[in-house]
C-alpha cells in the first residue's frame, strides 16, 4: 500500500465524506419526521391516513433504494419532473428511511401499555397531551435501539447515491479504481465511512445507556 498516494488522495475523500454526511443528515432528519407522522397516524388509527401510511411503509421497505432512485432520477423526467441529483438523493433516502423510522417508532408506541394510557386519561390528559407527556417519552426510550440501527443503515445506504451522479464516497472511489489502486481505495473508503458512522454509533450507544438508567422499566 502506497501511503503517499493515500495522503495525496485524502482531500478528495474528505470532500466526498462531507457531502455524504450532509446528504445523510438531511435524509435522516426528514426520515425521522416522516416516520413519526406515519407512526402517530397509526397510533391514533386515523381512518384512511393510517391505511395510506401502512401502504407506503410496505412499498418503501420492500423496494431497494437503488430502484427508488432510478425512478426519481430517470423515471420522473419522463412526466416532466426533473429533480437534481442531490434532491433525488435526499428524497429517495427519506422515502426509504421514513418507512423504517415509522416501524421503529411504532414498536416503541406499541410497547407503552394500555394501563399507562388509562392512567394518563384518568388525570384528564387529552389525546395530544397523553402522547406528548406519557406515551412518547416512554416509546422513544424503547425505540432508541431501532432508531439507532435505522440511522446507521441510512448512512450506509448513501453508498448507492453515485448512480444519480453525486460525487459521494463511492463515486470518487470508482474514479480511483480506474487508476488501478484497489488496496489504497479500499482503505480510504473504509476509513471515510468509519469516520462518519462510528461516532454516530457511539453517541447512540451512550444515549441508550443513559435512557436505560433514567427510570424506565420500573
Amino acid at each position: 500500500m502506497d501511503l503517499t498516494y493515500i495522503l495525496d488522495k485524502s482531500p478528495v475523500f474528505v470532500a466526498a465524506a462531507k457531502l455524504t454526511l450532509v446528504l445523510a443528515f438531511w435524509g435522516v432528519i426528514l426520515s425521522a419526521a416522516l416516520g413519526l407522522m406515519c407512526a402517530v397516524t397509526r397510533f391514533y388509527r386515523w381512518p384512511l391516513v393510517s391505511q395510506l401510511a401502512g401502504a407506503y411503509i410496505e412499498l418503501a421497505r420492500n423496494t431497494p433504494l437503488m430502484v427508488q432512485l432510478f425512478f426519481l432520477y430517470f423515471g420522473l423526467p419522463r412526466v416532466g419532473l426533473v429533480l437534481s441529483g442531490q434532491t433525488c438523493a435526499i428524497v429517495g433516502l427519506t422515502f426509504l428511511g421514513g418507512a423504517y423510522m415509522a416501524e421503529a417508532f411504532r414498536g416503541g408506541l406499541a410497547a407503552v401499555g394500555k394501563d399507562q394510557v388509562e392512567a394518563g386519561l384518568s388525570i384528564g390528559l387529552g389525546r395530544f397531551q397523553l402522547l406528548r407527556y406519557v406515551v412518547a417519552p416512554q416509546a422513544l426510550a424503547v425505540s432508541l435501539p431501532a432508531i439507532s440501527a435505522t440511522v446507521i443503515f441510512l448512512m450506509k445506504e448513501t453508498s448507492v447515491f453515485s448512480i444519480v451522479a453525486i460525487p459521494d464516497l463511492m463515486y470518487v472511489a470508482k474514479d480511483l479504481l480506474k487508476e488501478g489502486r484497489g488496496a489504497e481505495t479500499n482503505f480510504l473508503l473504509c476509513a471515510a465511512y468509519l469516520t462518519i458512522i462510528l461516532p454516530v454509533s457511539l453517541i447512540f450507544a451512550r444515549l441508550e445507556k443513559r435512557l436505560r438508567f433514567a427510570g424506565f422499566g420500573s
Binding site: D115, Q116, E118, A119, G120, S122, Y133, V134, P137, Q138, A141, A214, G215, F216, G217, S218
Partner: peptide
Amino acid sequence: GMVFQNYELFPH
C-alpha cells in the same frame, strides 16, 4: 380521581 391496582405511575 382514580387509583389502579398496579399503581401505573409514569416510569419516566
